[in-house]
């Protein structure tokens, strides 16, 4: 049943968001702390559990796969409803701060992911061959 998968997805998101809200309150932060991330972990765990297979096998899985395939169109709609005017007219301070922050963050990606790959590949028989 397709609705099993869709319902599972909904419950994961709701439980994740709720946990994120509680975590935020507990830490004294006025924000949801990782609600979506917790929901994703929950979904991954359910998918790997053999006892809950009925919720993700066959048609039920299609209910989740459909939303996963809708992800890009939803992101396109999200892009179309951003406050781009404010970003373009942001003034020099906002633009300089954002550009420098983004460029430096981009530059750090290969540095940190190299150490991620190094720490997961203990059999370093081929040094320098970063995958």
């Amino acid at each position: 049943m397709i609705i099993y998968g869709v319902a599972l997805l909904s419950v994961c998101l709701l439980v994740g968001q709720f946990t994120g809200e509680l975590l935020g309150q507990w830490l004294g932060v006025q924000a949801n702390v990782g609600g979506v991330g917790i929901a994703m972990l929950l979904l991954v765990v359910v998918c790997e559990s053999p006892r809950l297979a009925v919720l993700v096998k066959g048609a039920a899985g299609e209910g989740i796969r459909f939303w996963s395939a809708m992800y890009i169109p939803i992101v396109v709609a999200m892009a179309a409803s951003q406050n781009v005017v404010a970003a373009v007219n942001g003034g020099m301070l906002a633009i300089v701060a954002a550009v420098v922050a983004v460029v430096l963050s981009f530059a750090l990606v290969p540095v940190l992911s190299r150490s991620a790959n190094a720490s997961s590949q203990h059999d370093s028989a081929t040094p320098g061959a970063d995958s």
Binding site: L9, G35, M40, W67, S68, M70, M78, A79, S81
Partner: peptide, 18 residues
Amino acid sequence: MGGGMLRDFAIVSTAFGV
């Protein structure tokens, strides 16, 4: 369609199969 609710719903669904 591009608001927070459907965006988060779709993001979570991408974890399917991870």
